[in-house]
Amino acid sequence: MAPGLLWLTVLMIVPCLLIFVLIFFERGTYGGIDWSVATLGNFTRAFDPLYLSILLDSARIALTATIIALLIDYPAAYAIMKAPERWQTSLLFLAILPFWTNYLIRTYAWIVLLNPVGVINNVLTYVGAISQPLPLLYNEFAVILGLVYNYTPFVILAIYSALQRLDPSYAEASRDLGATAVTTFFKITLPLTAAGVSAGAVFVFVLSIGNFITPDLLGGGKMQMIGNLIYDQFLTARDWPFGATLSGLLIALMMIALLMQAVASGRARGDHHA
């Protein structure tokens, strides 16, 4: 056990703590870190409305992607669960398979599909549905689509696992007592699978909010999310301490999301026993 824990401590915990140390120093005049003066300046800077708004905007985009992913993936997972037993494994496998190919390539595929002279606009123009190409790429729509697409397989998996663990007798009992299928779904199935839903949701949210590639490639440089801002601070502005401060802020925000998930799943488990 020790070598593994040591590895994580030295190469994850210590570097992350270093981030929190860097917060208290300033950028040198020409970049890098000026170790000579400790300061709280980065804190006040990070709480500038500008940077907070970028953080909140990232949270909003991540949340939108999360909700859309759940709306698509819950019914999809449910459909897989309702499929004949012998098909389920294959369907689930098919749903998860895209997750295992390169993220950059999956994102790039959407550039090919969405760009003004891309596949979708070409097809729509060809069938005469549009005369001017639709602005599908390089905007928030493309970024959210990219996030939903990339994380959909995982969300289906998380929800399917929760559905599978569900005892079918609850739903049967509900139906026997005269509840409609819709009522049964909303009163029994959905609450009892809340833990799986929240696991999937947190996953999408956390990976989306810190995402760098999707806004970079599908946002056409016009979308600034917190991940891009951190990247820019490190490489473009060469202001490592401020980049570290923003990372610290992001870590804090994620902790909150995780805490909320823990509370939510704790409550879901509590309901189950009640």
Binding site: M12, P15, C16, G210, F212, S247
Partner: peptide
């Protein structure tokens, strides 16, 4: 769950 970019800059 740590965002890649955070782990990346921490390690750098």
């Amino acid at each position: 769950i740590v965002p890649d970019i955070v782990l990346a800059i921490a390690l750098l």
